Amino acid sequence: SPISQSQFIPLGEILCLAISAMNSARKPVTQEALMEHLTTCFPGVPTPSQEILRHTLNTLVRERKIYPTPDGYFIVTP
């Protein structure tokens, strides 16, 4: 029987999409709110552990794709 394939999207890209959507909705993007958003909006995607989430967010900050503030994470705009 054929095996169904799913699209692979890197966690960093999913986080950027989620942060962008939450920023547009003016929702604060904390790590907890981000986990909740991922569970709700990406039900088929396994939720990352806190450690993996933190590591991926730090990587995105180093890559200058997002930036942290006391009010949460935001997408870097050119």
Results as ranks from 00 to 15, higher is better:
1 S>W: 00
2 P>L: 14
4 S>F: 05
4 S>H: 13
7 Q>L: 07
7 Q>S: 14
7 Q>M: 15
8 F>I: 11
8 F>A: 09
9 I>C: 15
9 I>T: 13
10 P>Q: 08
10 P>L: 15
10 P>E: 10
10 P>D: 05
10 P>V: 15
11 L>S: 02
11 L>I: 07
12 G>A: 02
13 E>H: 08
13 E>G: 12
14 I>P: 10
15 L>C: 14
16 C>S: 07
17 L>Q: 15
17 L>F: 07
18 A>V: 04
18 A>F: 01
18 A>H: 05
18 A>S: 04
18 A>C: 12
19 I>Q: 00
19 I>F: 02
19 I>R: 00
19 I>W: 00
20 S>L: 04
20 S>W: 01
22 M>W: 02
23 N>Y: 02
24 S>V: 12
25 A>N: 08
25 A>P: 02
27 K>F: 04
27 K>Q: 15
27 K>L: 06
28 P>F: 04
28 P>H: 11
29 V>P: 04
29 V>H: 01
29 V>C: 13
29 V>W: 02
31 Q>H: 03
31 Q>A: 09
31 Q>L: 08
32 E>L: 06
33 A>V: 05
33 A>W: 02
35 M>W: 06
36 E>F: 04
36 E>R: 12
38 L>W: 09
38 L>H: 02
39 T>F: 07
40 T>L: 08
41 C>N: 11
42 F>E: 15
45 V>K: 03
45 V>P: 04
46 P>I: 13
46 P>T: 10
48 P>I: 11
48 P>Y: 04
48 P>K: 01
49 S>L: 01
50 Q>W: 07
51 E>Y: 04
52 I>V: 14
52 I>Q: 14
53 L>N: 00
53 L>M: 13
54 R>N: 13
55 H>A: 12
55 H>V: 10
55 H>M: 07
56 T>K: 09
56 T>R: 04
56 T>S: 12
57 L>R: 00
57 L>A: 01
60 L>S: 00
60 L>Q: 02
61 V>M: 14
61 V>T: 13
62 R>I: 12
63 E>A: 11
63 E>W: 08
64 R>W: 03
64 R>H: 14
65 K>P: 00
67 Y>N: 08
67 Y>T: 09
68 P>F: 11
69 T>F: 08
69 T>M: 05
69 T>V: 05
70 P>E: 12
70 P>A: 13
70 P>D: 15
70 P>R: 14
71 D>F: 06
71 D>R: 07
71 D>S: 09
71 D>G: 13
73 Y>W: 10
74 F>Y: 08
74 F>I: 12
74 F>H: 03
76 V>Y: 07
76 V>P: 12
76 V>W: 11
77 T>A: 11
78 P>L: 03
